[in-house]
Amino acid sequence: MPKAQNNRTASQNRSAGSEFWAGVCEEVPLIFGVVPFGLVFGVLGIESGLTPWQTILMSSILFGGASQIVFAQLWAAGVPALIVGGSVCVINLRHVLYSASIAAYLRHLPLRWRILLGYLLTDEAYAISIRRLQHEPPGPNQHFHLLGSGMLLWVSWQFATIFGVLVGGTIPDSWSLSFAIPLTFIAVVAPILKTRADLAAVMTAGTIAIIGQPLPWNSWLIIAAICGILAGWLVSRLNHQAGATS
């Protein structure tokens, strides 16, 4: 496309570079949460008995913070592989939602683009780029926004993991750095609790996670998660029905 024409319709037709750069810049504030998280994962991976390579490569292969933490913790506890795998899979099921919500904007792209952007579709990149896709005028290069936010997140996550692996042994236990894991999740969960159904999910999952501790193979996590999802879903159904009949 000639440059002059490109400039004339700048608001609708931003260049690939400016979309990419916007994605990178808008993602920056989230990096302040992602870097300590990746650092903690790097430290935890080594503490859990994973090798440095296993810890570092898990950040590329899984590329999902909560699931990597759970993987390392369950693996360290000697849990059967099937339970480790099942727990990781349940945690990552949420991405189907992101994929569904962003599909309309990406489906026309060539396969290699959809594979790349699918791989980069994390909580944080989705949260930033869906705003641009939904609320700003569409453009032929809009997918570069997700490429920018996703790439920045990917690079930050890998460097944070590597840094955590390298410095892990030198951080004293008295710093209680592993406490940053529940804190990170509190920062995610607390602000998004809105409905009674959310509360039902949280109360159920939290209660079963405690009373289920004696269950074999650390299966309390996957059971608590599934029961929490069911409880939230049931209450939201009941609310819908009550709303429909009243």
Partner: peptide, 19 residues
């Protein structure tokens, strides 16, 4: 879609509370 919407809070709460 409804059920998947509860995945993050259920999973993360199950990690938070025992920790």
């Amino acid at each position: 879609v409804d059920a998947l919407g509860f995945v993050p809070i259920a999973v993360l709460t199950a990690i938070i509370v025992p920790a």
